[in-house]
């Protein structure tokens, strides 16, 4: 297939996944604000959401203070923020439009109608009762996108590049979320426990749809290291780093070989760390360091995919 087509497919899926993850972060942060004493100030509550989005500087360029209203608008609807849900969905749709001949018409119509429906939220004041509805809508549109593409597209290389985009983006988002939250929630040498921690950690779990999975796997109280284990090492947890990398290596294995070796090597290395890693060792070296390394490694893998397949030169 055309390299440019593969590129558009890959980014289309990444942007949809990005929008979904942004919606999850917004939703959970908003929920936290309902818990008494959860955070000392709006800034303490909403600052981390900006951090997860990697949008702190962009926000500070436009605003002097951190308020719930402004952060929500900035992350959800602001066209000036390149990682807002608005920007992500617009980019997803523009990428889809560029390859509408290469995706099934159902997939295209799904993204196109997503974009048309988005207009209804554009002028809404989300904080005033519509944020939850909005986030639910984004999540369900993303689920629908994956379902429609999975169920209607030929499972050929086009589909594989699309799926690669989904999992590279998801791995990045889960790692960032966990890193920011763990950092915040686990001040040095402090005892853990109490209602606030419970809410905080259950919120983190809910933000990656892992609350029920946690109960099922551990059927025990919520402990931070178990949350980390679930989101890093569990292969059967769909948004964990291990699950993402398993998908990625399996997809890379199926792609045409000649240009693939460096991608396979980088992915294999990342995958092995998750597959054979033990949580105690990860904690010994520092979870933060581990996650930081992972984000860099995952990013390199993305660049390598880009170099090998998507920006293919004449040779």
């Amino acid at each position: 297939m055309l390299s440019r087509t593969a590129d558009h497919l890959y980014w289309m899926a990444r942007y949809i996944e990005r929008a979904e993850n942004m919606a999850r972060v917004l939703d959970v942060t908003d929920n936290m604000s309902l818990v008494p004493n959860a955070a000392a100030s709006e800034a303490a509550l909403w600052g981390p959401a900006l951090e997860i989005a990697g949008a702190v500087t962009a926000y500070e360029d436009l605003h002097d203070t951190i308020t719930a209203n402004e952060v929500i608008h900035f992350l959800a609807l602001d066209p000036r923020n390149p990682s807002s849900i608005y920007s992500a969905l617009l980019s997803a749709r523009e990428n889809a439009r560029a390859v509408r001949a290469a995706i099934s018409s159902e997939t295209w119509e799904n993204i196109n109608s997503l974009w048309l429906e988005f207009a209804q939220f554009q002028d809404m004041r989300l904080l005033e009762g519509h944020l939850h509805e909005f986030c639910d809508w984004v999540k369900s549109r993303s689920h629908l996108f994956r379902g429609v593409s999975f169920g209607t597209m030929l499972h050929d290389d086009a589909f594989r590049f699309l799926r690669l985009g989904t999992f590279i983006e998801r791995a990045d988002n889960t790692a960032r979320l966990l890193d920011v939250k763990y950092h915040l929630l686990l001040p040095n040498d402090e005892e853990i426990g109490g209602a606030v921690d419970y809410y905080e950690w259950s919120a983190v779990l809910r933000s990656v749809s892992a609350f029920q999975a946690y109960q099922k796997v551990f059927s025990d109280s919520i402990e931070p290291w178990r949350v980390a284990e679930l989101l890093v090492l569990r292969q059967d947890m769909p948004r964990s780093l291990h699950a993402c990398l398993s998908e990625i290596t399996a997809i890379l294995d199926q792609l045409p070989g000649r240009r693939n070796s460096e991608c396979l090597r980088v992915a294999g290395e990342l995958h092995a760390r998750l597959r054979y890693g033990r949580m105690e060792e990860i904690f010994q070296g520092g979870l933060h360091e581990f996650l930081e390394d992972f984000v860099v490694g995952n990013n390199n893998l993305g660049l390598e995919i880009q170099r090998s397949f998507l920006n293919a030169q004449a040779a």
Binding site: S3, R4, A6, R258, F309, A312, A314
Partner: peptide, 14 residues
């Protein structure tokens, strides 16, 4: 792109 007396397209397989 053009190479020799032929036109090629850039694909993921070359």
């Amino acid at each position: 792109f053009v190479r020799g007396n032929a036109v090629y397209m850039r694909t993921t397989e070359g």
